[in-house]
């Protein structure tokens, strides 16, 4: 029987939705699923994790050092906790990507990154070459399997579960060589880019930081999160955390609207699991039109206001 440990991601207040996707992947592996919440005060996140369908136990590992989710701090504890589990999973977010390989190396395990599909408990599909190849890998089960879960490939599990919550302590020694200084986060009332069902992204075609206001305005009308291409980020139109693509966020919204984005392969890698892609671009030959379900050729500064008017009528 598989015993699966999922490392929860959170910001100290709320459970990150990527956790529920990692739990879905754990359910596809099959077995007993525990979720570990490392925090200074884990109550709120543990309660949310206990509702995730398929979870048997939520482990609260509370200590003062766990206030920030630093890899150097969490990994010695994950390694202690991993004993007895067949699988250790985390979402393939910047959190999971930072923490889990460090834990895998301590365990002497070759990690599987970005699991897209579970074939069986030891065989998985994952992307390589910016998603241009999907490789099937067979993983030795001993001592355990360590894997990150590609969030865009998994739906969040439902929240009608009722797992037991247990406080756990480890005797892990925590190093002092790594210290949190600060988090510069953009405070926004808009939906979170990674998990929003609707996303509007702007590219180089938007032209400037000031012009990006039209993207924000249209996104607000749609109730959408705002994203951007790497070109727009590099040009300084928007901050880096809005970047969608191979080296930014990989997302899978219900609706993705690409505005003034030509559609470089690096960008398409980040959106190809979206259910509907709409492209608005003045260049009829832009590669984005080859993947878009609905394309409209024209000037974004004319089309977006017109779209807003039409949306008002609905």
């Amino acid at each position: 029987m598989n015993r699966i440990l999922v490392i929860a991601e959170h910001d100290g207040k709320k459970l990150n939705p990527a956790t529920a996707k990692a739990v879905s992947c754990a359910s596809a592996v099959g077995g007993e699923i525990d979720v570990a919440v490392f925090a200074a005060n884990a109550s709120a996140m543990a309660a949310a994790a206990a509702k995730l369908k398929g979870v048997k136990r939520v482990l609260k590992i509370e200590r003062a050092e766990n206030v920030h989710q630093l890899a150097a701090v969490l990994t010695p504890q994950i390694v202690k906790l991993a004993a007895g589990y067949t699988h250790v999973l985390a979402p393939s977010t910047t959190f999971g990507k930072d923490v889990l390989p460090r834990a895998a190396a301590f365990l002497g395990v070759q990690q599987v990154s970005d699991v897209m599909k579970v074939i069986d408990a030891t065989t998985f599909e994952r992307p390589m070459y910016a998603g241009n190849a999907i490789v099937t890998v067979k993983v030795p089960p001993s001592p355990c399997i360590v894997a990150t879960v590609r969030t865009a490939s998994w739906q969040a599990c439902s929240e009608d579960g009722n797992a037991e919550i247990t406080a756990v302590s480890t005797d892990a020694v925590i190093p002092s060589h790594t210290r949190f200084v600060e988090l510069k986060a953009d405070v926004s009332d808009r939906p979170d880019l990674q998990s929003a069902p609707r996303v509007v992204s702007g590219g180089r075609g938007v032209g400037s930081k000031e012009n990006f206001a039209v993207i924000y305005k249209f996104a607000d009308k749609l109730g959408a999160a705002v994203g951007a291409s790497r070109a727009a980020v590099d040009a300084g139109f928007v901050p880096n955390d809005l970047q969608v693509g191979q080296t930014g966020k990989i997302i899978a919204p219900e609706l993705y609207v690409a505005v003034g984005i030509s559609g470089a392969i690096q960008h398409l890698t980040g959106i190809k699991d979206a259910r509907t892609i709409v492209a608005i671009n003045k260049d009829p030959d832009a590669p984005i039109f080859q993947v878009a379900d609905i394309g409209l050729v024209g000037d974004l500064f004319k089309i977006l206001p017109e779209l807003e008017k039409e949306l008002d009528k609905i």
């Binding site: 959190f95 930072d98 210290r179 600060e182 988090l183 510069k184 986060a185 953009d186 990674q194 955390d241």
Partner: peptide
Amino acid sequence: EVDAGLEVI
């Protein structure tokens, strides 16, 4: 560069 913005350590 982290999902939530920029983290300094």
